[in-house]
Design a binder for these strands. Structure first.
Lengths: 212, 212
DNA sequence: ATTCGTTCTTGACAAGTGTCAAGATTCTGG
DNA sequence: CCAGAATCTTGACACTTGTCAAGAACGAAT
């Protein structure tokens, strides 16, 4: 019976610990989300823990309590960012009944992203560049890059399928192409170029039928 | 005669001033070149003026004498970097007598660049990302981006010409494609992925005939 | 050789950085 | 209700940062 009691106690203790862990992790994500605000505003180079704390409802000590150091915090930010990003076009892909619907849905989301989430995306490009210097970022960044490539591939192969074809390029090339176009458009958009978004849409509209 | 004398004096003074200016500018470039070493090693975020000075033959005060502030220095670095970069493939384009020669010349330079100048190129991607946050960088960065796009366009249109064709895509799309592929390969290469370079070469070799 | 302008060195300053530890507060199980 | 753990605040630390000013070293013209 002692064994049963300890067994039950163990289960309870485990459950409690799991709950604590979950709560701990939820808090980490809250903090990461707050940090993303400031990171998107200032970029990696100019963002300090204190600045993050001041632009949020937290004090700078809390960040040290939940993260072992600054890199740990930013890695958590990056990972969290990924989850939001990767499913952006999935609904469009799932619901589009023909090529035109897919095209327009894709272009619409593309334009909206560029317009409304420019800050988050410049941060992504910033952190991807940081990964070229800081080994600690590489694993997460490479993983996100893979996910984004897969996301583009889902769009492209669905587009091809709706035309009874197969994508004409490799997944890597398609991702490079769209990512390169988006990056360039983002920079121009942030520089105040009003034609950046329409130019991107034109380009993608023209490109889609030729690559898929 | 007084007029002649003052005229001559003016000419002499002007020449002296031009000489001083030239010397001043040459020194700026020396300093920028030294700064590029450290920037390529550490990236924008982690590079300080003192670190630059310590990794060079200069003291940190000299940088303040020749540059109004840190941004001024880095802008000068970026501009100087541009000049070196943009002509990289010109000889190959000028001398290649057929598609195969152009392909092999291009791929050779591509691989060599990735292998030997990875640090300079990760710095370029870093600074291009910084330009999304720091308006002071934008003008120079956008200009360099244009030059690089033109460089790719020269290769592509020559390749097309050697096959009696015209490039099948816009200049913007071609640049986005190759830049995206290069950026991805660079990150993988820096992460220690031995297949990054051969994969890039394969991809480009396959792509060239389909886009031009 | 002396003077004057250019070039460079040195040291200092204030502000900002990541980190941490001591203690206040809040939560929770008994 | 209360003790102990979890969570959070505050303030301090050692250090780095960009900037600058005072003056030394240098070069060239007189």
């Amino acid at each position: 019976m002692a064994r049963q009691v300890t067994g039950a106690a163990r289960r309870v203790a485990d459950a409690a610990e799991a709950l604590r862990d979950e709560k701990f992790n939820a808090r980490r994500i809250e903090l990461a989300e707050a940090a993303l605000e400031t990171l998107g505003e200032l970029g990696f180079a100019r963002t300090s823990l204190r600045e993050i704390a001041q632009n949020s409802a937290f004090t700078h000590g809390v960040f040290h309590y939940y993260f072992s150091d600054k890199l740990d915090l930013i890695c958590c930010c990056v990972r969290h960012y990924k989850a939001k990003c990767v499913t952006r076009y999935d609904e469009v892909v799932a619901t589009a009944k023909n090529r035109d619907e897919l095209t327009e849905g894709f272009l619409g989301k593309l334009a909206a992203t560029l317009r409304n989430e420019a800050r988050m995306h410049r941060l992504w490009y910033d952190l991807r560049s940081q990964a070229m210097f800081e080994a600690a970022f590489r694993k997460d960044v490479l993983e996100i890059d893979k996910s984004l490539e897969a996301m583009i591939w889902r769009i492209a192969s669905r587009y091809a399928e709706l035309g009874g074809k197969r994508p004409a390029s490799s997944s890597a090339a398609l991702y490079a192409l769209f990512d390169g176009l988006f990056q360039s458009a983002l920079l121009r958009h942030l520089a105040g170029d009003k034609t950046a978004i329409p130019d991107l849409l034109d380009e993608v509209r023209r490109l889609l039928p030729t690559v898929c």
